[in-house]
Design a binder for these strands. Structure first.
Lengths: 201, 201
DNA sequence: TAAAATATTGAACAGCGTTCACGTATTATT
DNA sequence: AATAATACGTGAACGCTGTTCAATATTTTA
């Protein structure tokens, strides 16, 4: 068998990424396999590797799009200049996004966790974009004296991931959702108060 | 082949858990396979299932011991009653433990992340024990008015896991360690200040 | 039209967790 | 002591995985 030219290289790549996105969104990242994608698009497993380095690379491509979607939501925010209000706005958008696309977001997290995977430049760019939004929201908390905004954002971001990664034991599945929301809100609230309180013990 | 009685049921289980611990500690959780364990203890893969439900169960057993070790370290702490000092003490012990047993700790985290795995009661008990220590450390931050200590500890714990899970991109491998330490310290510092600042916006 | 380049395949590789029929060594019963 | 019952260990097998690659069919170029 050989060149079918049903699709160009770009079309095929698009097809692969779209299908992968669909599969992750509907069944979750662990259910994503090359053979499933291949079956769904009517190509063989091997063909996927003509268009993508490997499965991790493909997941990064999906994640990049997910981040772009989140960023689109985040840029809708109108900042007020009050760090607490604005941070709450960012958190609300973030929570909504998570709820709308739980599996896609889990895929982002799962990859963020892996130190071995080197993320493509374009993906890191999207991350930076959402960090920038978060930075704008919390910066006023430092007041006149300033501070390491980058560090503050990194920590808040990582912490949020933690809240949503660690699965609370001994809770009914139905309550996990609400509990995490509560935790996330408490985290942002407390953290921002801490930022306000500022340097010195 | 059949009953060899080289080891009793308990001895074999101990052997399996010990070997798994060794393999995780030296090669990391992803390298742990039933076949490797079997080879190392001179039994067949199938025999492991006589003594343990499945691989996840085995990992939980290993994690339980890891938590016990951490708790042993944590109980060495002499609390002063000042929340900032005591939290720093807890964090310091935690960081030291992480550094001494990075792979074992990663195994704990990897499992903490998975919502599908139901942890054994005995394991949850160990978690509770360290939570209790953390609770003792931060409680004074609430002052007279009190507050939801449980929520506060849950959030701090999850946040810490986040800081150590999310791998900072664009950093040299050598710096990741220091960066995380910095982040963890900033988190605890800021969070505790926030707790002090207390209710109300 | 012949030759070179390229896309696609599907079998193959090496690995994984887990299961299970089988046979043997130990234990219990007679 | 001889026999029956039980428990245990085995190793092959199942159904997966990501990835590679020789072979082949098609398209493009000469």
């Amino acid at each position: 068998m050989a060149r079918r030219s049903d699709h160009s290289r770009e079309e095929l790549k698009e097809l692969v990424v779209t299908t992968a996105t669909y599969l992750i969104a509907s069944e979750g990242l662990p259910s994503l396999t090359t053979r499933k994608i291949a079956a769904k698009i009517g190509y063989s497993p091997g063909s996927i590797y003509n268009v993508v380095d490997n499965l991790d690379h493909l997941i990064s491509l999906v994640n990049e799009r997910t981040m772009r979607r989140l960023n689109a939501d985040l840029t809708e925010i109108v900042m007020t200049g009050d760090e607490m209000t604005d941070s709450r706005q960012v958190l609300a958008k973030y929570l909504d996004f998570r709820e709308s696309h739980p599996n896609l977001w889990d895929a982002v997290l799962s990859h963020a966790i892996r130190p071995d995977v080197v993320q493509p430049e374009s993906y890191l760019k999207e991350i930076e974009a959402s960090f920038a939004v978060a930075a704008r929201a919390i910066t006023p908390a430092f007041g006149e004296r300033g501070g390491d905004v980058r560090l503050a954002v990194d920590v808040l971001w990582s912490s949020l991931q933690g809240v949503f990664s660690v699965s609370p034991q001994g809770l009914l599945a139905t309550d996990v959702h609400a509990r995490r929301r509560e935790m996330a809100e408490f985290l942002v609230e407390t953290y921002l108060k801490g930022l306000r309180a500022g340097a010195g013990r």
